[in-house]
Design a protein around this nucleic acid. Structure first.
Lengths: 244, 244
DNA sequence: GAAAGTCGGACGTAGGACGTCCTATGCTGT
DNA sequence: ACAGCATAGGACGTCCTACGTCCGACTTTC
């Protein structure tokens, strides 16, 4: 099936049409994540383009998380991921930090809306197993805080486990991306929050939140989460206006 | 500034390092959206890679919405956009529709959490101007519904205007992306909701929501939004199990 | 039968050549 | 002097060839 594209398109539209042809090919053939894709040679013949053009399109799809390339072996349909969003947001966040930094605040606002808005639903579906895992991360935090160590991973795990009961891959991925982007942005400003007092405070706020979740107090959990993010916003404000 | 990369990296990591070098170059030079980037030749020399490799990296950045390429003129830092997320999610959505379609439900869940969770804050910042625009879109819907026409654009505008007062670019972009992806997915299933009765019902629910927003009743607005999305979920369920 | 070596296929990188497109410059005509 | 057009140059777009690198599978060997 040689497709013939009208040559009267600007380059951007042509590349987009090519990537679209490839994704259509995946969909039409019913390929599932993990399945092998045609080789470069086959795609060149089917799509009627040169190797460079084809490779540029494929690299785009790789960046978008659509295909996975294994050097020396072949190309495959990728598992679901939000690599594209993460890379894009990370760049935008870093860029805005060098100028104003309001985009970091936007990120926190969206996280707050998602987490505070969904924690109630998540609590309705939470299991004893999740609660045990949550408490384990809290204990980790408290121990690390007492030793004066930061606990990035434990913090992330806490929020990940909290929303796992919803069984919503998109939401989990989104929150994970936001977390990573926020951490990247945060790391590039300063680690001034690594004081032992601040660590203890953060650990304690997570302990409070855990207790609220355990007791099933949805409004309290939601408001505690909101406070948590208000605190994060405060740190950002300190960075943007350290003199004031 | 010739960077020397250790050759002991797999191809994927190498491409990633290259795109990272380019974004770092943008950040280090303080380039702003709209600013011109170095030419391919200059980047080849600075980064020490061949033209093909460089172009593949740049195409990735173009797909990620980092750079904008103007054929025959040059490359520029792109304005903020979430093209990457939109393309990625659209593909995933289409793919899941051909098999189970649960990802469309996840999309609706996230939209519901964001919109229902943030409508209260948005109402606190809403202005008379926004209210007038909102009512205009509602009137549009009612007119189009009476004529038996669908009103995709009016529907989208309503939700866009509703959250404009928050002045959160990331949120607006996310909601816009979700809307586009949902519309794409929805179009590929059927247009069975274009009956005049269903159109009138949709228009009416937007009218109710508008009245709640106008009167400042935040809990009512939030619950109306939640109901709105429950209805959408119902349509998806009908598609996935039309026999039951 | 298992381990090592070999082979072929597939992706990765480089460079050149030519086409296409856009901008800017300078010319022309009024 | 200004408007419009024609041209030249630069920059990206596409294709081709060649070679490097990596991986899996097959063959050989013990």
């Amino acid at each position: 099936m040689i497709v013939s594209r009208p040559p009267r398109l600007d380059a951007h539209a042509r590349l987009r049409a090519l990537t679209s042809d490839i994704t259509d090919l995946i969909l039409d053939r019913g390929l599932l994540p993990g399945d092998a894709m045609p080789t470069e040679q086959e795609l060149m013949a089917e799509l009627g383009v040169g190797r460079n053009t084809l490779r540029e399109a494929i690299k785009v799809l790789q960046a978008l998380g659509v295909v996975e390339i294994r050097h020396g072996f072949g190309m495959f349909v990728a598992e679901e991921n939000l690599v594209a969003l993460s890379d894009s947001l990370t760049f935008r966040g870093q860029m805005s930090l060098r100028h104003k930094g309001h985009e970091a605040n936007e990120l926190v606002d969206v996280r707050q809306a998602l987490e505070a808005g969904l924690v109630g639903t998540a609590m309705s579906a939470i299991t004893e197993h999740h609660l045990a895992e949550l408490e384990a991360t809290v204990v980790d935090m408290e121990r690390l805080a007492a030793e004066g160590h930061s606990f990035i991973d434990a913090d992330r795990n806490f929020h990940r486990i909290l929303f796992e009961p919803l069984n919503n891959q998109l939401l989990s991925n989104l929150l994970g991306v936001f977390w990573d982007v926020y951490r990247t942005i945060h790391q590039s400003i300063d680690a001034k929050d690594s004081t032992r007092a601040h660590l203890a405070e953060t650990a304690h706020s997570h302990r409070e939140l855990f207790e609220a979740v355990k007791s099933g107090d949805k409004p309290l959990a939601s408001s505690l989460l909101a406070c948590h993010f208000d605190g994060i916003r405060g740190q950002l404000a300190d960075f943007n206006a350290p003199a004031g």
